[in-house]
């Protein structure tokens, strides 16, 4: 898993999939498939809220959600499922701490952006500049500023995750104190 290493795209473009507040890790990665292979797990991402999502989401699509996105478990399979489905970025009013950390750690772009729920309707074409934290609705022309990620997190995202970064920094870390 997380085998795909690469650089962070500067801009993500796609259609918007909208979700509400408190989207939990049980909705993102149901416990019943906790140790199933990724190919199976990704078919159940958010299926209880919108069964079309795992079937029809396309690479680059953008998840727009309310507050406390990813609340609940520490399971990294929650952002991993979204990444495996090709989601380009999750833009939410706010994130749960664990989901936010995990998303950065596996290289899934996330952006806290107050006001985003009101600015988008389901299916709107959207564009996100990740480092610049700029979110645009290409239907309405509206632009919003999210909260910029600190440089250290952008560095992790650009490396494709914390482990690719560790690898890139050299194996000398291994086993040392």
């Amino acid at each position: 898993m997380h085998a795909v290493e690469g650089t962070l795209p500067r801009i993500v473009q796609g259609r918007v999939w909208k979700f509400g507040d408190d989207i939990s890790t049980d909705l993102l990665a149901p416990g019943a498939y906790a140790v199933a292979p990724l190919e199976e797990r990704k078919r159940h991402v958010l299926e209880s809220v919108n069964p079309r999502f795992p079937e029809e989401v396309r690479p680059g699509d953008i998840v727009v959600a309310g507050r406390n996105f990813g609340c609940g478990s520490s399971r990294e399979t929650a952002p991993e499922g979204l990444k495996a489905l090709g989601v380009g970025c999750v833009v939410a009013e706010s994130f749960s701490r664990l989901f936010f950390r995990n998303a950065i750690a596996i290289g899934l772009p996330v952006l806290p952006c107050p006001g985003v729920v009101e600015a988008f309707e389901e299916g709107d074409p959207a564009e996100v500049e990740i480092a610049g934290a700029l979110v645009r609705n290409l239907r309405t022309g509206q632009a919003l500023w999210g909260r910029k990620l600190p440089p250290a997190m952008l560095e992790v995202l650009a490396a494709g995750g914390i482990l690719p970064l560790l690898k890139a920094r050299g194996q000398q870390l291994s086993g040392t104190t």
Binding site: H2, S74, L98, R101, N102, I106, I162, L163, L166
Partner: peptide
């Protein structure tokens, strides 16, 4: 690697959950 790691705070421990990749980083460094 579990969200309920906050439990340890009952004993004045700073306990918190992290994901699997971050745990790999911790185990290495």
């Amino acid at each position: 690697t579990d969200s309920h790691t906050t439990t340890y705070g009952a004993l004045a421990v700073a306990g918190t959950g992290i994901g699997t990749s971050e745990m790999a980083y911790v185990l290495a460094t």
